[in-house]
Nucleic acid binder design. Sequence first.
DNA 1: AGATAAGCGAGACGGTACGTCACGTCTTGCA
DNA 2: TGCAAGACGTGACGTACCGTCTCGCTTATCT
Lengths: 195, 195, 195, 195
Amino acid sequence: MEVQSYTPTPGRPRDQMVKASILAAAIAIIDEEGPAGLSVDAIAKRAGTSRPTLYRWWRSKGEILLDALLDVTSEQVSYDHHISLIDDLKFHGRDYVALLSGPYGAAYRAVFTDGLADAPFMALVRTRLIGPRRNVTKTRLEAAIMANELPCDTDLEALIDALYAPFLYRLILGHQPLSSEFSDTHIEHTMKGYI
Amino acid sequence: MEVQSYTPTPGRPRDQMVKASILAAAIAIIDEEGPAGLSVDAIAKRAGTSRPTLYRWWRSKGEILLDALLDVTSEQVSYDHHISLIDDLKFHGRDYVALLSGPYGAAYRAVFTDGLADAPFMALVRTRLIGPRRNVTKTRLEAAIMANELPCDTDLEALIDALYAPFLYRLILGHQPLSSEFSDTHIEHTMKGYI
Amino acid sequence: MEVQSYTPTPGRPRDQMVKASILAAAIAIIDEEGPAGLSVDAIAKRAGTSRPTLYRWWRSKGEILLDALLDVTSEQVSYDHHISLIDDLKFHGRDYVALLSGPYGAAYRAVFTDGLADAPFMALVRTRLIGPRRNVTKTRLEAAIMANELPCDTDLEALIDALYAPFLYRLILGHQPLSSEFSDTHIEHTMKGYI
Amino acid sequence: MEVQSYTPTPGRPRDQMVKASILAAAIAIIDEEGPAGLSVDAIAKRAGTSRPTLYRWWRSKGEILLDALLDVTSEQVSYDHHISLIDDLKFHGRDYVALLSGPYGAAYRAVFTDGLADAPFMALVRTRLIGPRRNVTKTRLEAAIMANELPCDTDLEALIDALYAPFLYRLILGHQPLSSEFSDTHIEHTMKGYI
DNA sequence: AGATAAGCGAGACGGTACGTCACGTCTTGCA
DNA sequence: TGCAAGACGTGACGTACCGTCTCGCTTATCT
């Protein structure tokens, strides 16, 4: 068991409230005003802080959104073994759709916007935001292989892509609604193709 | 048979060379220097023209890329009935993958970047770039329904999403390579789920 | 007496109407909209012509105004020997004040604006606009010297400056009204100092 | 005796060096390259600063020149009672001529150029640049009236115009040199007319 | 009568400067 | 040392005029 050692740093300690209010401000702006209104300055202003303080904690606007999303996502992502593989995936899919449809959807979109323009940041998005979620599903799928519910030579990366890509595709393009019904039927069809 | 009537517009006619060189410059920059180097000024400079000329014909950087992509895409998209539905889709998939992997892949990414930050522009992307390509596939799938190769109640929009979303997903995220092998197996699995 | 030889040039002859309508347009714009609205394009548009045509006749906006002013000024400037030197000068002064106060005052101001930014053009203004008017006065003053109404060693350039500079000063600065009363008393005082 | 209270404004204080270098740059450019070279960008570049910084403190090129001129002018303008009214005015006249003939003459011209094209700015020129200098002379003339050296009903505004208009006239038109000799004789003649 | 040549309108073109926005970094005073 | 306030240099943006060009058409003179 690790003992969290207290390292007394000189000077004034960092204000955790500042961090929280910045994350909240970022989400509030992107949700209310859309991506156009999300300038670093606007975030700082809304959080009642200043740009330098903001840059002390994060290297870019994108990383703020990333942290804000991780705050919300982290506890949600998990599989409580339900009845069957397909039901678990459906449950997870509905969960994801709910997240992307809600106020955090715009943040997701903004994170991809930044990532597309900045490769190292996209790597971070993969590692911290997308990767963990994929891994949860991967673990569930590996369990399914163990249980002979899935062929043992299944390309899990491809399957996970097939399962979730359409969600982000609809989030990004907006050509079709992103509903739980779509999630359910899409997951059914996809899994039928892989079993 | 249609007779092309000549409509002489008053004033100096638009220089088609300028248009072409701007489209070429945009693609060259995004391919060579990445999205960071793609400023309106850089495009104008490389094309040997000026910013005002550029804004005379396009409202934004994004629309330039859109036009550049349409120049390339337009003739490519078509289905020459091959042997079977699955082979046709595979052929088309490989074609798409080749486009996204080549020098135009970066332009595709940039178009999505701009679209994510600007909803009206994303609508344009849907209408002009994504829509036509989807429609070609839709026509092929409808023919398949006619030929009883596919259930008549198939949700074509969902199927098309399932087919192509992973391509753009990999293009955008870059977590896995976008290869013809992936295209083939992905399309096989997907269609298996829908038949 | 000179015989104006007719030199038939090939091609379509210049349309004098165009010239007239451009001069009128320039004066109309500067009078109605002020100097800010006086772009080359605005003149051409208002005159119902095009920029290239305009540049065929004049080298710059300033030269248009110059010509417009000369059209008006040319016949006005003259001394009909009245009663005395002082009365002639007063008459001339009132005439000048009337010109500068009317719709052509703004054109005068604009001519100086252009001249201040473009030395060769200011030389033209001196030669064509200011010079002739000064010469008329100079001639009158030289006659006065002949008539012993003025010392023969009078510095005429300095005297003419003293007489008219305040008019342009008030036109340009606008700190005090440019009235006939001012003209009269100013000319009286000035001549008193030189006699 | 006044106690200068220190009012600490929040945030980083304005860099006075930047202000000084911008003013110096403006004067240097107009003097060396003439009015054509005086773009906002050129000033910023020469001052080693940026356009936004420049616009933070001045609304236009003209206001920069105005400040630059005020820096120089402010201490110069004063009358140390010399011997007589006429000598004081001559002294002041030579001072003015020296200013207009030197490197600041071009700045003066540019200020008028801008003022002619922008009435509100010309009002500023009157209030800040021309007015104070006129007032100094006005005070001296009022003292002269008190001392019975001048009629008590003298129109001081008109007299001041008569005294100084020819200086600016020659500065602007450039038809005659602006020398101390001219200043002396002109002031003598003018005052002779008003006494 | 037809050829030739220039004027004319419209409007595209390359260019320069403008005034503004957002960024990321800095320098203050206070906590 | 953290923090707010805010100034600073940088780079890109979208726009306004400028002066020149290339069209199709018109209007004259010259063969």
